[in-house]
C-alpha cells in the first residue's frame, strides 16, 4: 500500500525529529493491527494491550535504526511485535490457553456489555485453540493476513519470505485450519 507508506514516511520523519504527536498518529494508525495480531496469540486482553504499548515503545526507541533498514514501517512494527511475543512467551513459559471462566474479569471504562464481552471471549478462545493446533509459521501467516489484514507483500516483509512463498504457506495453512475446524466440530 504505497499511500499508507507515504503517509507513514512523513509521520516517521516528524517523529524522528521528536514530534510525539506524529508518533501518536502512527500509533493510532497501526495499533489496532498490532493488537489484533498479539491478541490472536494470547489468552488475555490485558496482556495484548500491554504488549501493544511495549511494541510501540520499542519502535520509538528504534526509530533511528528504522531508516537504516528501509523496511515499510508496518513490517518493522510486526517484526518488533513478533519478538515481543516471543519474549513474553519465554517470560511466562506457557502458551496454553485458559477457559473463558478462568480469564480475569477485566473491564475498563467504555467496554461493551458483559454478554457481548463473554461472547467475544468465547469466540476468541475458539480462535486461539484452533490456531494453537497449527504450526507456528501457519499461525503467523494466517494471523497477519486475516486478523491483522496485511497484504501478501506486507506479510512477506514481516516473515522475510517471498510473496509466492507466503501464498503457498497461506494455502497450506488454510487447509490445515479447515481440518482442525472439522476435528473441533
Amino acid at each position: 500500500m504505497p499511500g499508507r507508506q507515504d503517509k507513514d514516511y512523513e509521520l516517521i520523519k516528524k517523529a524522528q525529529h521528536g514530534d510525539h504527536s506524529a508518533f501518536g498518529d502512527l500509533y493510532e494508525n497501526h495499533a489496532p493491527s498490532i493488537f489484533r495480531y498479539l491478541y490472536a496469540h494470547l489468552d488475555n486482553q490485558m496482556d495484548a494491550e500491554d504488549l501493544t504499548g511495549e511494541v510501540f515503545l520499542k519502535a520509538w526507541q528504534s526509530l533511528p535504526k528504522y531508516t537504516e533498514r528501509g523496511v515499510p514501517f508496518l513490517a518493522f512494527l510486526f517484526r518488533i511485535a513478533r519478538n515481543t511475543l516471543v519474549d513474553h512467551y519465554r517470560q511466562n513459559n506457557r502458551q496454553e490457553s485458559k477457559d473463558p471462566e478462568e480469564m480475569d474479569g477485566y473491564r475498563a471504562e467504555g467496554n461493551p456489555e458483559p454478554v457481548d464481552v463473554i461472547g467475544s471471549q468465547i469466540e476468541h478462545q475458539k480462535l486461539l485453540r484452533l490456531l494453537q493446533k497449527l504450526r507456528p509459521d501457519y499461525q503467523t501467516v494466517l494471523t497477519l493476513r486475516f486478523i491483522s489484514e496485511l497484504s501478501p507483500e506486507e506479510t512477506s516483509q514481516v516473515m522475510k519470505r517471498s510473496v509466492g512463498a507466503i501464498r503457498v504457506l497461506q494455502h497450506r495453512a488454510l487447509a490445515d485450519l479447515r481440518k482442525e475446524m472439522d476435528k473441533v466440530s
Binding site: F23, G24, F35, R36, G53, L57, E123, H124, K126, E149
Partner: peptide, 21 residues
C-alpha cells in the same frame, strides 16, 4: 468473523495513545 473477537475494546487506542505520548 473471528477478527471481531480480537478487536480492541472501545476507547483503548485513544486512551493508550495519550499514555504512550
Amino acid at each position: 468473523q473471528a477478527r471481531y473477537s480480537v478487536a480492541t475494546r472501545p476507547g483503548f487506542i485513544h486512551d493508550s495513545r495519550k499514555y504512550l505520548e
